[in-house]
């Protein structure tokens, strides 16, 4: 469905002895909102930098908008908007001047959107950049990234420094943008709660490898939580069934399991262990530890 915006095959990135990305192969297509999740130092920022060509792979290939990342030209780069985790600006300029300077490099810069966003995010365009708080700097970076109406938007922890109201407005804004511009948005964040409400596709990185690359809805369908209550006899110490991924709360009469729904038959299980099973779905914060654990094994 839609356009292939990024494709990596066997992408490996080493910084000296540290391997940030290990044999990553994935493809991102849009329009879509893609959530890039993972623990700290799992390679999220590195991957985002590879998408826009700021870093080059040690081995493997990466192609963005159909072009190898080392050959990205202005035609492609003008279609990509980036909000880095630590935005850098020219310190002596005011926010408005910085935006005007940036606008001179893009063939289409939406001034209406600029004033709309500045109003929405409550950003003072007259303020000096050196005097901006981290949250305001992030807001400015968001405005700068969205005004050229890009087809691909990369956001690295964009909401971590925003207050709850700004965060909410920003997430709604992303939904608008993806529909108006048919853009693909890749948003990397720790705040799973916010990601869950906005994204439709999840890419989970763990220690530099891809632990999950699927639609969020499909991921939610793949796993479930079973609350097991013994009826008559005690439960075994360990459930040997193949579909059991994790066991917590192991008591003689109670257990909580996380299972893979494919191949998990509730009735057969209830019958085999003489227990009642209550099946509950897992949301993203509940799925996250499973995904990163899976990656490790």
């Amino acid at each position: 469905m839609g356009e292939l915006v990024f494709e990596a095959s066997g992408l490996t990135k080493e910084f000296g002895e540290v391997t940030a990305l290990r044999d990553v192969s994935l493809s991102l297509s849009g329009p879509s909102i893609i959530g890039l999740i993972g623990r700290n130092a799992s390679g999220k920022t590195t991957l985002l930098r590879h998408i826009v060509g700021l870093q080059l792979p040690t081995r493997g290939q990466a192609r963005t908008l159909g072009v190898a990342t080392r050959n990205l030209r202005h035609e492609q780069l003008a279609r990509i908007g980036v909000v880095p985790d630590a935005p850098t600006f020219i310190r002596w300029m005011s926010a408005g001047e910085q935006l005007r300077y940036l606008s001179t490099f893009y063939p289409r810069w939406d001034l209406e959107r600029q004033s709309f966003l500045a109003g929405l995010l409550d950003l003072d365009l007259q303020a000096d950049i050196s005097g901006l708080s981290t949250g305001s700097a992030q807001k400015l970076a968001i405005v700068a990234a969205l005004c050229p109406r890009p087809d691909l938007i990369l956001l690295d922890e964009p909401v971590s420094n925003l207050d709850p109201i700004a965060r909410d407005q920003f997430l709604r804004l992303l939904l608008e943008v993806v529909q108006e511009d048919h853009a693909t948005i890749v948003i990397s964040s720790h705040v799973l709660h916010d990601i869950e409400s906005t994204v439709d596709w999840i890419v989970c990185l763990n220690n530099g490898t891809v632990a999950a690359d699927a639609a969020l809805d499909d991921l939610k369908d793949q796993y479930a939580e079973w609350r097991v209550l013994a009826r008559t006899r005690d439960l075994p110490d360990r459930f040997a069934d193949a579909f059991v991924v994790r066991q917590t709360v192991m008591e003689p009469r109670r257990a909580r399991l996380v299972v893979r729904t494919a191949g998990a038959d509730v009735r057969a299980f209830e019958h085999a262990h003489d227990a009642d099973v209550e099946v509950a779905p897992l949301n993203l914060p509940g799925l996250f530890p499973i995904l990163v654990d899976n990656g490790r094994h």
Partner: peptide, 27 residues
Amino acid sequence: RGRAGAGPQSASRAPYVGTSVLRGVVS
């Protein structure tokens, strides 16, 4: 600085778009 930041009235004519090295240096 007395003058205002970018407002709706300042049009962006995108003078530095493209691959011209001279424009790049000037910018």
